[in-house]
Design a protein around this nucleic acid. Structure first.
Lengths: 367, 367
DNA sequence: CTGAAAGCGCTAACAC
DNA sequence: GTGTTAGCGCTTTCAG
């Protein structure tokens, strides 16, 4: 590795002159600057970030802590953040927790050791207290999931409303036995979603039947598959189901496809999140689309703003939270229970598409 | 930020004693060690990586340079690598190029400045020469795409064979007019894939009709959509198409779904890569599955091995290249041209699934 | 067993 | 316009 010293030696200059020349300092003669640039290029000089960091310069690295980038939800987040940070000459350090608290702690500790400028974190359900302590020492925002102990700054979706809307849609179609497949109650997000479901039922004057609720790991497609089969196999099966996470949706779709279940005739389905392929599934999946990319971008921009503001007057530290409503995308997987259309219509008959292309209806949710 | 100095002051010790205690050095008394550990915990001490780096310690960070993590192909790569590095207490720095050479250079320069231990890179089509120069100074491997100027180490798939097999499958079914939708020739990978297509045709004694080949940006779904529509609209349209990239496959599927094209009756389709959802598309997509996760993991493991070997005798630097064959997954989207089954069979009739679940045939390709 | 000192690469005072 | 010096936090001689 070439250093400023090397290039100083080669040109018979002092290191400081070289440093100043590279920093384009006013008081260095144009000629010296040129010679230095030349030599630097020639020797393949690359400034040493570690040294600069030690001198107190702020790092340009942002930590991103997510459960799993393999999950397309989080890969979208990673992409959006990388994009945003890239535009501001910053780097992203990728950390996967696999929803394991120990792994989360290790990563946050590493980020602290690396002196990162800031952190965007999708926390595990119940982070260790050490994580909270460490995060206090660096600017950070929570994304999607929100754990109060980690701080007030958060960007996410309105989970309660999202599932409420999904459930209400089915209620409006006339369904009375609506199943819900979601994450376990230890995850705050999952609790809110479950509440949205229950409240929608309550608002319609229906009592919620515990037999219609299946909770399990939210990041597991197999939970979704098993749960929808369990619901269908029950003595008094639901006429519709709401999926409470992206992976659960995947599992449900796979199971129904494999079992040859007729949707929406035998069962109406509302998904969570909108992925490439959800529109081709059976009659097209009615689902709640979430503005993941926009959310992550907003989160990144906010963090950047905070970092820059912090450099000046350190007063822009007021708690901030942002919620995005989802968007209900109406496709073919939902219909009135036992409806005529559901029984007579051939599912996905290619000659006569149910709707012309691009005619999907989008319904904005109330904030 | 607490430093060793702070904790030394608090305990009336010297920094060196504290350092040794934290490093669990032999010659420090158990009691002193304990007190130091205590104080460190209490003050929330986190070792400063930058300082250690300056002392010549190797970084634990690995750079990952990809076109776009939003692309599920690369998000799988990122996941696999994060997982692998995580298991070895290493971090991953995520860099997106968007297939832009300037962005690629900036990122590689940043990685060099950060003194990363190694780099896994999916290079842009024609990297700037500065990128090659920089990469020479650090251990690196190319992934998927291969550019000779960047070095000999590479992990990828056998692109030629993959598309050759896809094409041969259609030829065996009796197709004679087979379209190919791929990436432009400036991308090495795309060139090899095109060669696989041409060679398969040649081997069957068919001359390749330039009108059946549509080249464009490989990461653009809209290219795939436009291309398949163009092929179908041509005076003498193909009876089958092969898609030459993941995003192209997505575009093709979307277009055919929107247009209500009957697959495989009107057109047989072979995809590239296997994604969640490809099995539900229409009659199920016949496609070439690629072992992306395994490939990226192998790549990561190799790099780790190299890094550790390098510490000892620096002789394990022999060129290495690994190719993985794909796996042809046979589903419903391919059939003989104008075949009886294609014309009479109802597409994806749910009551009687074409095949029982899990009965997809997998065909291993020859290496 | 512990302390003092040097130095990694860089920059910001402080000379001249 | 350029050189000298000091010090960021840590490890690692070399002395006690």
């Amino acid at each position: 590795m070439t250093t400023t010293k090397d290039i100083a030696a080669q040109l018979n200059l002092s290191v400081s002159t070289v440093g100043r020349a590279l920093a384009d300092d006013q008081r260095i003669s144009a000629e010296t600057k040129f010679r230095v640039q030349q030599a630097a290029e020639e020797l393949g000089y690359v400034g040493n970030r570690a040294a600069r960091l030690m001198r107190g310069e702020r790092s340009t690295v942002i930590g991103l802590v997510v459960p799993d980038v393999g999950n397309s939800f989080y890969s979208t987040v990673a992409h959006a953040l990388a994009e945003t940070m890239n535009a501001h000459k910053r780097q992203v350090m990728l950390c996967e927790t696999g929803d394991d608290r120990q792994a989360e702690l290790r990563h946050v500790r590493d980020l602290a050791a690396a002196q990162v400028a800031g952190v965007v974190i999708v926390p595990t359900p119940k982070p260790l207290t050490a994580v909270a302590r460490l995060l206090k020492t660096m600017p950070h925002v929570q994304l999607v999931r929100r754990v109060p102990s980690l701080g007030p700054h958060w960007f996410g979706v309105d989970d309660r409303t999202v599932i409420h809307t999904a459930t209400s849609h089915l209620l409006e179609l006339g369904h009375e036995r609506i199943g819900y497949i979601g994450g376990t109650r230890d995850i705050p997000t999952a609790t809110k979603r479950l509440a949205g479901y229950s409240e929608a039922l309550a608002a319609a004057g229906l009592s919620s039947d515990p037999g219609l609720v299946q909770l399990g790991p939210p990041s597991s497609a197999s939970h979704g598959a098993a749960a929808v089969r369990a619901l269908r196999a029950a003595p008094d099966p639901p006429t519709a189901v709401v999926a409470g996470s992206l992976q659960i949706t995947r599992g449900v779709l796979d199971a129904l496809h494999q079992d040859g279940t007729q949707v929406p005739r035998q069962l109406s389905v509302v998904g969570f999140g909108d992925e490439p392929g959800f529109s081709w599934w059976g009659p097209g999946l009615t689902t709640v689309a979430l503005p993941v990319h926009a959310l992550a971008t907003a989160c990144g921009v906010w963090l950047l703003h905070r970092l820059e503001a912090q450099t000046g007057s350190g007063s822009v530290d007021e708690p901030f939270a942002s919620v995005s409503p989802g968007t209900l995308v109406l496709r073919g997987s939902t219909a009135a229970p036992g409806s005529a259309s559901g029984t007579t219509r051939r599912r996905q008959k290619p000659e006569t598409p149910r709707r012309p292309p691009g005619s999907e209806r989008l319904t904005d949710l109330p904030a």
